[in-house]
Design a binder for these strands. Sequence first.
DNA 1: CAGTCCTTATCTATCAAGTGGTAGGTTAGA
DNA 2: TCTAACCTACCACTTGATAGATAAGGACTG
Lengths: 187, 187
Amino acid sequence: MTSMTDEREVIRRPADRRERILDAAEKLARRGGYFGFSFRDVAAAVGVKSASIHHHFPTKEDLVVALTARYRDRFLESLGDPLQPGAARRLADAYRSAVGTRDQMCLCGLLAAESDALPEATRGEVGTFYDANIDWAARALGGETERAEALIAGLAGAVVLARSKLDPGIYDRAAAALLSGVSSGHR
Amino acid sequence: MTSMTDEREVIRRPADRRERILDAAEKLARRGGYFGFSFRDVAAAVGVKSASIHHHFPTKEDLVVALTARYRDRFLESLGDPLQPGAARRLADAYRSAVGTRDQMCLCGLLAAESDALPEATRGEVGTFYDANIDWAARALGGETERAEALIAGLAGAVVLARSKLDPGIYDRAAAALLSGVSSGHR
DNA sequence: CAGTCCTTATCTATCAAGTGGTAGGTTAGA
DNA sequence: TCTAACCTACCACTTGATAGATAAGGACTG
């Protein structure tokens, strides 16, 4: 019971502290972007001091890179297999998860918009997110890379528009139009 | 010669100083967003002290609101008449102007992504930008509001993707697909 | 025309708060 | 005892914003 992983809810739970830091930082970064939150904001949300954040992630760039990589991996995993039926619909649903909830903008959409001002490693992670998204969509569309780019662009833009207008309907209508356009123009 | 407006390049040119402040601030905001630049950054770019910026725009929100309103008005003016031939192409070209040049992201695309963390008045200006864009596109498409939303979303997203990947081709291909999708799916 | 007054635009100097980051000490578990 | 995790306490710097001085120019007034 006291070996292996400690399941008691004691004061310290070092194992998942790192994950909780990433959780808090992700929440903040999805609201205000790279420059819209501070180490102290993260620390306060987790319930520790800012020096502890530096212990796990020496610099802000380290933190945001880790954040973005985790976000990307989880997002891609949630998409499943692009060759299984209903792939385009699943993609649209995944993007939709960043609509409707306040302060939960798509992390990579926000960081991509700030791209010019980001540290290089961070920009790289964001680029990988969209590379992987386009690749996934292209496979789902039978290798039509150009239509995949247009679809990802459209979904990403629709998230921003719908959030900015506080109207999820914009996303749903735009996604429907994009999906019908994608399927009608080809195949 | 010394009456009316003074055309000499003397030390003080108060008339256009305000515009020059907006020019500098726009450049900075299009790079790093609302939280990515400071009054001192703007002041240094213009060649004055930060207190002088506060004289023209008391708060940062005032500055960014003025910035966004000017950007929106200019953008809409550049689109011309949505009922004239080639309107969709003109729209795509207007969005394209924010692709390829470094540090010149579409201001409203960036601010919309940061929307959750912006002061309310600023968010309002950004919302108006997209309202007007969708309205313009809907008129260009013969009243098809849903397709207009999808088109604007697609173009806005394509700008972000192309910039983030430093590949203008992404924008061009996505724009072409969006325009063909828009015209093929209907009419 | 001279004198003064007001407005505009700018400056210097400063503020309290917040920034990313560091040094070094403390504590608890393996 | 060693190490990871966390702390207190700080650092130099930046942030948005303010107060008050200065200077220039236009506009009334005598």
